[in-house]
Computed example of a mutant assay.
Amino acid sequence: MALGGNPIFNGKNFRGATQAPPVPQAPYGQQPYGQPYGQQPYAQGGGPQQQNMTNEQLQQMYTQPAAGPADTGRMTFDDVIVKTAACLGVLVAGAAVTLFVGQSLAMLLMVVGALGGFVLALVNTFKKQPSPALILTYAGLEGLFLGGLTRFLDALYPGVGLQAVIGTLSVFGVTLLLFKNGKVRATPKAMRFFMIATIGYAVFALVNMVLMLTGAVDSPFGLRSGVIIFGIPLGVFIGVLAIGLAAFSLIMDFTSIEAGVRSGAPQRFSWTAAFGLTVTLVWLYVEIIRLLAILRGDD
Rank of each mutant, 00 (worst) to 15 (best):
Q59H: 14
Q60S: 14
L162T: 15
T198S: 15
G173V: 15
I135K: 02
V123R: 11
G239S: 07
V279E: 04
A96P: 00
L177F: 15
P36C: 08
S170A: 15
F118N: 07
V123S: 02
T72G: 05
L241N: 01
Q60C: 08
L169S: 10
P22T: 04
V240H: 11
A265G: 07
L234K: 01
P220D: 01
G47T: 11
L153G: 01
R74E: 15
G147Y: 00
P69V: 04
K180N: 14
D253M: 05
I81P: 05
V282S: 00
G182S: 12
L169Y: 06
C87P: 05
G102S: 08
G222A: 00
A85R: 07
Q103H: 13
Q64T: 11
A246E: 06
A95V: 08
N55F: 13
A246L: 10
L88Q: 11
I199L: 15
F9T: 09
A265N: 02
G29N: 10
Y42I: 06
M191W: 04
A70Y: 03
R192D: 14
V82C: 02
A93Q: 06
A205R: 12
P36G: 09
Y28A: 15
F275E: 07
D71G: 10
T125Y: 07
A259M: 15
G264P: 10
L277R: 03
M1V: 12
P132L: 04
F193M: 11
Y285M: 09
G5C: 06
T63M: 14
L292P: 00
S256N: 10
Q103F: 11
R185V: 12
N13T: 12
I229S: 00
I257F: 11
V227E: 00
A293H: 09
F269G: 02
A273R: 01
P233L: 05
V23W: 13
A2T: 11
L99F: 14
L176H: 10
D78F: 10
M252D: 07
Q31G: 08
V119S: 00
G200D: 06
Q50K: 12
R151V: 11
Q44A: 15
P65V: 09
V240F: 15
A26E: 09
T278S: 13
V207K: 07
N181R: 15
T187A: 03
K189W: 12
G38F: 05
L120N: 03
V171C: 08
G244P: 06
D79V: 04
V165S: 08
L136K: 02
P7Y: 01
A274I: 07
G244F: 02
P132Q: 02
R185T: 09
M53K: 13
P220Y: 03
G89P: 04
P36E: 12
A86K: 05
A43V: 05
G4M: 07
T168K: 05
F179Q: 13
T198N: 08
R290P: 01
V82G: 02
A121N: 14
P36R: 13
G116E: 05
F254P: 04
L108T: 13
N208P: 08
R15D: 06
G239H: 00
P233N: 09
V160Y: 07
D299S: 10
L245V: 10
G260M: 10
F194S: 12
L99P: 00
R290C: 03
A247P: 10
V101R: 02
